[in-house]
Amino acid sequence: MNGLRLAWSYLRIGILNEFQYRANLYIQILQTFIALAVGLIGLQLVFDQTTQLGGWSRTELLAVMGVYILMGGVIRAAIQPNMERLMDDIRNGTLDFALTKPADAQLLVSVREFRLWQTVDVLTGAIVIGVALAQLGWSLSALSALGFLSALVMGAALTYCFWLMITTTAFWFIRVNDIANLFEGLYAAGRWPVDIYPLWLRTGLTFLVPVAFAVTIPASALTGRLTFLTWLGALGLTVLFLVVSRLFWRRGLKNYSGASA
């Protein structure tokens, strides 16, 4: 397929680009290490006081942390850099180059950047998940594993849609650069399963910013909490978000070219 080949070409360029900045790898490893240490200490502090948190045991929360780190890596490697470049392009007028190419514009702006070294987080997250699973006695069924993987993909897709819609508002407001910080702040809440938060915050973290789908639901699949109904709901919401964000993107693009004026 053409789209896949295009994505692969950009991925290749992104990787080549990252090799120019070797120092970033070491900085990233250091950052990941610090974040992991802070996370583990936090977990330790909580479980010095109690044996469970909102129905989650210590080992299960380790799995949540693993998913949190992994998904954070995916977002910072593939989603956030593309959306930040899109914001810059809209502001500087360089989006014109992307729009004069014979390729789907949304696809193009979504695959242009890739931060290879952020995948250190993906790897670390996977290891933490592995450790948690080992402590849980490898009791994961094939169905749960499938549920986990599909929930991860859906979580990433929902997060992408969220970013795309926010970034698309740049077509109207031009300056939306602070959303990266806003997202980082809210995503940090995903370190813990969203069911420990009060209802209003839980609702916000589920439907406004899809932290619940990005972290809690995949982690639920790992720990045998995910029901088929929730999974189906997540699937439905993912499809809905994909469609809505595409429509929103097209609307923004129309505004950019002055077709709606």
């Binding site: 053409n2 080949r5 295009l6 692969w8 070409s9 950009y10 290749r12 360029i13 190419k101 014979p102 390729a103 193009l108």
Partner: peptide, 10 residues
């Protein structure tokens, strides 16, 4: 970058 153009234009 030229390689990328090749991919974009097929």
């Amino acid at each position: 970058s030229f390689d990328l153009q090749r991919a974009i234009y097929g």
